[in-house]
């Protein structure tokens, strides 16, 4: 599903090279629930941008869903994001001028889906997160947890194979945060690949697999240890 092969991302700040990703090799299978964990500055955000097709690597190869996306231009990346990825952000990132329905509808509009089908898909997606009764509310009328669930519904609306969650519980209290995590687990059970980015170990431990980043290098990958242990 996701294959990062020798990924380097090097920024030039003045004369200094900053190696945000310093040779990452990561393979994530379908239906996995992976947490990428690391301190700030560890390169986890860069990693998330890379996996999320928001950025292209300086060198290396990224195979997403069978196709090489490391050499695509911006519009081609947009299309890949639209078709294969669903984003969940820390700050929900709902568009405040649009109501719940319109927010969830956005990825479908950009995909060019007919109005009739959009209506059905939005309702389906909102019922998965249990917010069908709030369909015409504005984001500001919802609580933080509800807003995050709307953003999960938005990520799900186009049925993308991969859900990318960037600190989804960061802005929520622990109880609501846990609810959101349970929801993500449930979505994973239903067949989606989930990549969760967090700095919080306790949250990371709820994932099936933990990938730890430090200074742009993977220092721990529980999947590999399982293999090691089996050996």
């Amino acid at each position: 599903m996701i294959d990062l092969i020798d990924i380097y991302k090097i920024y030039l700040v003045g004369d200094t090279q900053i190696r945000a990703l310093d040779g990452i090799n990561l393979h994530i299978d379908e239906k996995e629930f992976v947490a990428i964990v690391g301190q700030s500055g560890s390169g986890k955000s860069t990693c998330m941008n890379m996996v999320g097709c928001l950025d292209i690597p300086t060198s290396g190869k990224y195979i997403l869903n069978g196709s090489d996306v490391s050499k695509l231009n911006e519009d081609e990346l947009s299309e890949i994001r639209n078709l294969t990825l669903g984003f969940i952000f820390q700050q929900y990132n709902l568009i405040s001028k649009l109501n719940v329905f319109e927010n969830v509808e956005l990825p479908l509009i950009y995909r060019g889906i007919e109005k009739h089908d959009r209506q059905r898909m939005v309702e389906e997606s909102l019922s998965r997160v249990g917010l069908l009764n709030r369909i015409y509310n504005m984001p500001s009328q919802l609580s933080g947890g509800q807003q995050q669930r709307v953003s999960i519904a938005r990520a799900l609306s186009g049925n993308p194979p991969v859900i990318l969650a960037d600190e989804p519980t960061g802005a929520l209290d622990s109880k609501t945060g846990q609810e959101v995590l349970e929801l993500l687990k449930q979505i994973n059970e239903e067949g989606s690949t989930i990549v969760l980015i967090t700095h919080d170990n306790s949250i990371a431990h709820q994932a099936k697999r933990i990938v730890r980043l430090h200074d742009g290098i993977i220092t721990e990958d529980t999947a590999l240890e399982v293999v090691k242990n089996e050996l």
């Binding site: 947009s78 990132n93 568009i95």
Partner: peptide, 16 residues
């Protein structure tokens, strides 16, 4: 700006 970022992350192309 942020709205534009959100729209792009959801798949909006330049021309959109």
């Amino acid at each position: 700006t942020r709205e534009i970022g959100i729209r792009k992350s959801l798949g909006a192309k330049r021309r959109d």
